[in-house]
Design a binder for these strands. Sequence first.
RNA 1: GGGCGAUUAGCGCAGCGGUAGCGCACUUCCCUGACACGGAAGGGGUCACAGGUCCGAUUCCUGUAUCGCCCACCA
Length: 844
Amino acid sequence: MSEEGKKEEPTRAKTVDGLEKKWTKWWSKKEVYKYRGESRSSTYSIDTPPPTVSGHLHVGHVFSYTHTDVIARYKRMRGYDVFYPMGWDDNGLPTERRVQNYYGVYVDTSLKFDPSFKAPLEGGKAPKDFKAVPCSRENFIELCETLSQKDEEQFKDLWVELGLSVDWSRTYHTIGEECRRISQFAFLENLKRGEAYQKVAPVLWDTTFQTAVSQAELESREYPGFYHKLLFHADGEEVAIETTRPELLAACVALIANPKDPRYLHLKGKSVKTPLFGVKVPVLFHEAAEMDKGAGIAMCCTFGDVTDVEWWRELSLPVRSILTKSGRITSSVPEWIQSEEGKRAFEKLENLTTFSARKEITSLLKESGEMEGEPIPTSRMANFYEKGSKPIEIIPSRQWYIVNGSHDEKLKSDLLACGEKISFHPAFMKRRYDNWVEGLSEDWLISRQRFFGIPFPIWYRVKENGEVDYASPILPSAEELPVDPSSHTPKGFEEKMRGKAGGFVAEPDVMDTWAASSLTPLLASGWKRDESLFKNTFPMDLRPQGQDIIRTWLFDTVLRSWLEFKELPWKEATLSGWILDPDHKKMSKSKGNVVVPKEPIETYGPDAVRYWAASARLGVDTAYDEGEMKIGRRLSNKILNASKFILDLKEGAGDISKVASPLDLSLLSCLFEVEKKVTLALESFDHASALQETEAFFWSFCDDYIELVKDRAYKGDQSALNALKIALDAILALFAPFLPFVTEEAWHWAHPEGISIHLSSWPSLVEAKESPEGFKKAALFLSLLRKEKSERKVSLKTEVEKALLFGPGSEEAKIASSDLLSAVHARQIEFDPSQKEAGAKIEF
RNA sequence: GGGCGAUUAGCGCAGCGGUAGCGCACUUCCCUGACACGGAAGGGGUCACAGGUCCGAUUCCUGUAUCGCCCACCA
């Protein structure tokens, strides 16, 4: 026992306050949660979600991580060697922005690493006329690692305080060297097998961040717009179309109507002239044109939305692009506009943002009389990059992709089969996986036009004529990884050949953050780094995560694992729900309703906060509820007090052979039943019922069993004393995964030489000879007698002459007759099972 | 438009073929030799609605409504 422990012993803690400091220190000193790595069969491995290191903590973190910790602790007590690592996600836009603001820098990939670089700021507010300073990608990554270390300390403090049983010697960073190496290596493997490829195609583009984004990162939002009715000119008639994107008129390549629409059939094979620009475009027909939408005929622009892309592809239309990557109209008149009026009109739109261009073109159209009526306001759904603030545009560019089954039926069905083999908890979450896989329409776009992130390990040759030869990239060997092609020179070249004809250039793009995150099971388990660790931990057992990232993190991880090994990354996936604020609104920083987890932990104690979290089932959105924490705190205190009471009695050794009274045996049978239920629940990841079941038994144990046997226990009755001790040990063990601090405290009172309850074994009682009904009925009649006393307005300890128990169950309750007698302070007791309804009477 | 979940006491939630449970809150009582950061007892619900299956439905089936989420649509 530690010195601290000794000091505590004479006066056992009365409340839960302060337990966390004492025991977290002890656990760390004794390496209670260390993964030993003996064999795959004894290992239970967890693919812990690496929290985004953004400097903000949130009770939602506490919620879902507690669910996982309960399982980790349970498995450990079941004898598993639990592999429970922790990662930090410091690769991605949130970190990038945070580092930029914190240090006052931005990345310039043309710069070389500067070992003496000093950032101009170090947190705090930037001076008024401050201008951010450029730095190399490597310097930026260094700054990122420095800052995330600070953030990680915060997170780690929280996790430790919460009592997460993480093995802190196993941590990783998603921007760390090892992760860059693995991500690049895995990408090169994909490339080798033909699963990664590049192509020039229309991509979803965020104009604010100026990067391509993937289908998985889209979200639909309500966006205000206007319907504009434009008049196209056909022979002898005007064709009206409706559009919300008039600014793209110059990019129009065709009008599309439904082949079944009689209104436009006569235009088949004809062309029309666009308003303002007078460009001739064909009238074409396609099933995707909806007759009841707008005018029933649409203009197809390159590119206004994904339907345009579909038409463009299927009808082999030309590309007429007028939007630049910054979201502005191009700065010169495109060659397809021939007429003088058209050229003049376009000049007025040059360099305008889509928003200003829309206003400008509207007035031009009004002037020319080619718009019918006023624009009609509408609210439509538009696609946004989830972190962006303007709708995405579709712009053709060269990008890297990884296959995901969208164009490959075999791969798609393999991935669906993977979904079948993973157990989702709750099970209905699997449908979201299926829906996503079935609905994929494009391969996974993994290149991002950002500066911070994991670079593609690729260079390209520059031909003698100065053109970049994308077709045959130069690749590094596995030993060279990680590389940053913008500052490292490929083998066989000299740095001075960079950017020169006959030389080389770097691939400027970085990988999507999910490209790294999708490798967490490989990263954590030591793939290509520690083969014995890898053998013992992969495929992993459990992936816990949020329900919102099934389509990204979960799917991408399955995909990468499948491509790499033709294997599942893990067997089970648990999905936690949202945390809502007390008014059932989703907690989010922008709403300002976020609760910082430190506060409730300090106020109620970590066990109480865990109690709240563990009371909610997986997949169920849960309101933040301090009331529930109060109950958890009360329960924790009660556990301490009940333990104290039992251990202060004349010590029973917990020897089951000394338990002889039928009531005591019956209690142990009830306990056996509870253990079975709790174990079953935890095996199916139903921590909430496990906790509830344990708690219900514990209250009945305190209110009924302890009250019944108190008298015997005071008198040193061995049967009662031993049963109390056995039950106490079992109850502490059943609570241990949920309430690690109080259970540890009380367990050490009983086991002063032991290391930790969390390394002790899960209770495995055998059913006692007596039926559980005896105790249950005794408890029932004890409660009926209490009710009788309460209704007769006498105190519980008032002496009475006779207690009369009748009705069903009173026969079984007879095994407790002498205990009932002393518990209700009666001189005699009578039973009458012949009555129809159970009840109790007292006589004075 | 497709899919998924929810709807049970004032609130938060369990339950699931046999005439409703837990916790909080509420009312009453009790500083009883573990516990007043406590304990005992009590009141409170036509289980969203409408059909169907069944001897019997809150529980199964089919619809409807409301709320939430995911996907698709975005002329």
